[in-house]
Design a binder for these strands. Structure first.
Lengths: 218, 218, 218, 218
DNA sequence: AATGAATGAGTCTTCATTCAT
DNA sequence: CATGAATGAAGACTCATTCAT
């Protein structure tokens, strides 16, 4: 849960073979895909704003879709990476005394990650519904790996008596909704507002844990 | 909060002037837009699956975008209608003894509405990011009217001591996230699962109100 | 073995549904394909010389290859039609006293046909080696139907003692070579020479029958 | 009428300056041109199947067409070489007692040559109609030199009373048709059949000389 | 109102060719 | 000599839109 969180830079560093032009293409593609959507972005437009010839794009990516995937796949994989750590369970016991600690760590980590890669995140959620291959990839990774792992965590804290006895999937859903809801509102719907991120995260964790109702006095 | 919840039918009934062909066009467009996205759907495809000539579409809608808007605008307006009732406040006092009652009523009503109009909902959330006019419409209606109204409601129950003292917008965000999160997971991400809707809604309301943590013993 | 020998006209008459533009497209395509070859002819070029928009071509023919086939298939079918007459054998007995009569009739008929459709014939023989579907069509029609029928004819005259006792396929090959050789030299290789067609055909028949050697004196 | 009949090898031996890569390029080009046609073969494809970089092709051949010509020209020249021997006439007198002897020698020699260079032959006959320069080259060599020479030969044997009194060009046409017809049927149209080449050649010579009709009894 | 042929700008992609390394 | 990234013109094909019928 560390390292250079900025995915684009990371992709660039990882692949040393990337031409300067290739980097420009990727940057331009990310910008345009996020702004107007994959289908409404033309390759000629990408080429122009990347400052390369249109043919250059197709030298590096066989098809326009290949270009999209080369952008989204690392995003997807990197996003779920932390959840796939083999011994997540143990890590939990040692590191996080309570579910709340775990939740807070998780949220801060993933929110930081997504905030730094908002354009990629936007492309990802916009295109998943329309790209069967992406959908499959998403389902496989999120559906099997992440949810399985998370279910274990939830059950672990349920056994410890910290969490209510609701179906884990429902708990996960609410938690995830709160997180993604925050990200989407904060970055995509109302980015122009002044946000006190730390306060919002605190509030969000607080509400996930204890709801919005004033607790009944004993 | 009543009437024929199915928007498409309603649109058809409302506008008596709609030709039989026009209805077919709308149905075909909704189907295709939801399935492949607005940008990836061609008018010729819509015409074919509607069983009309290409020209017929443009007789009724000046442009392809007009067709999209003619579908989405009623959706958007209908969705927010309940929130804009002038005397919502009074209605509240009389009808809903507690915020939880209000919340449950609201959720059931809107979930029922969206579930019955899932295709339209999907088109709406997919296209809003890319259609500036839609975005403006959305911000104006949701941003000003709905949030304003909802803020009043939240403040009302905060004054009654039922809700915690967090910023209303944050409370609204969490509540909305939980609802939309449920809808999206249930209808778009994992529609193939067996869902006990009533149980899920109960759980969701319960968690919004009291969180997922086991309450501390007094 | 009669009727309007000009295939293009016939195609036009047969298909009453052909638009005026569609006819222009076909004529332009034939011209260009024959002149520069299928692969070296661009659709934009066809469009231009047909005086239509490029899109118009694709309204009528899904692909460029479809356009090619729509031109070549009738040609191929029409060319072999006379050989597939069911009762060719009977026809022979009645009409043609000798193989030489038959041969002369056949040659004059087919040479007349091909001469009138030289462009189509040129396209046909140029494209067959490169279009697997055409090759298959050709092999099926020529290979099975025409050769089978012709073999019967040859054997018939061999039994009558008119033809030498060589393998029918070899006899057919020499005969066909002489005919196509004449056509190709006369129309494609040396069209600028002055040709006395009737004399050439007479000579050709004469040589097919008796060779080029001076017969040995008895 | 001697030497290593395989043209490709000969080209390689003759030009000692040919790089190993260059040889691979030529071989790959021949293969692809014969298979899919010149216009439908891309230089990148040739480069790939030759195992060289695209640039390498253009280091040796200024243009794609240059590559084609570098392949076809030797073919054309080599093919007609035997006919251009200055004192062909004398050679004839001495070597060939009869036209039939001459014909048989000629056929066996040229058939052997073309069979060994079938791919080149195929490229030659496919491209001649579309490459004006080739066409000119062909006409000049075949049209003037070969036909002129051959006409002399035919007239020589006509004077000796061995050949009928038809126009030499017609006799040449029939003879050439029979030869090329055999080559095309045997190698390009029906290569999958079992061919007894010697028998076929014998038959062909026989038919050229005496036709297919049973000679009338004296 | 409905049609569908026609359009031509625009799409993704391929290609022959160049040139710095 | 050889490479392969880069080019941009051209290719086949699609599309939203128009208009005469």
């Amino acid at each position: 849960m560390n390292g250079p969180d900025n995915l684009i830079e990371e992709i660039f560093e990882q692949s040393d073979e990337l031409t300067e032009k290739q980097k420009k293409i990727i940057l331009a593609a990310i910008q345009s895909f996020a702004e107007k959507g994959y289908a409404s972005t033309s390759t000629s437009e990408i080429a122009k704003s990347a400052g390369v010839a249109e043919g250059t794009i197709f030298r590096h990516y066989k098809t326009k879709k290949d270009l999209l995937y080369s952008i989204i796949e690392p995003m997807l994989k990197k996003f779920i990476a932390p959840f796939v750590i083999k011994d997540m369970e143990k890590v939990l016991n040692e590191k996080h005394a309570s579910f709340e600690d775990f939740l807070r760590a998780m949220i801060e980590n993933r929110i930081s990650f997504l905030s730094k890669n908002m354009l990629l995140f936007k492309i990802l959620i916009q295109e998943i519904p329309f790209q069967p291959e992406l959908k499959a990839l998403f389902k496989e990774h999120i559906g099997t790996k992440v949810i399985t792992r998370f279910t274990q965590v939830v059950e672990h804290y349920q056994e410890k008596g910290e969490l209510i006895d609701a179906p884990p999937l429902t708990i996960i859903r609410l938690t995830a909704s709160a997180i993604f809801g925050y990200l989407i509102v904060r970055n995509l719907l109302l980015p122009e507002l002044d946000w006190d991120d730390q306060a919002e995260i605190d509030q969000t964790v607080q509400m996930i844990m204890h709801g919005i109702a004033v607790p009944k006095q004993a």
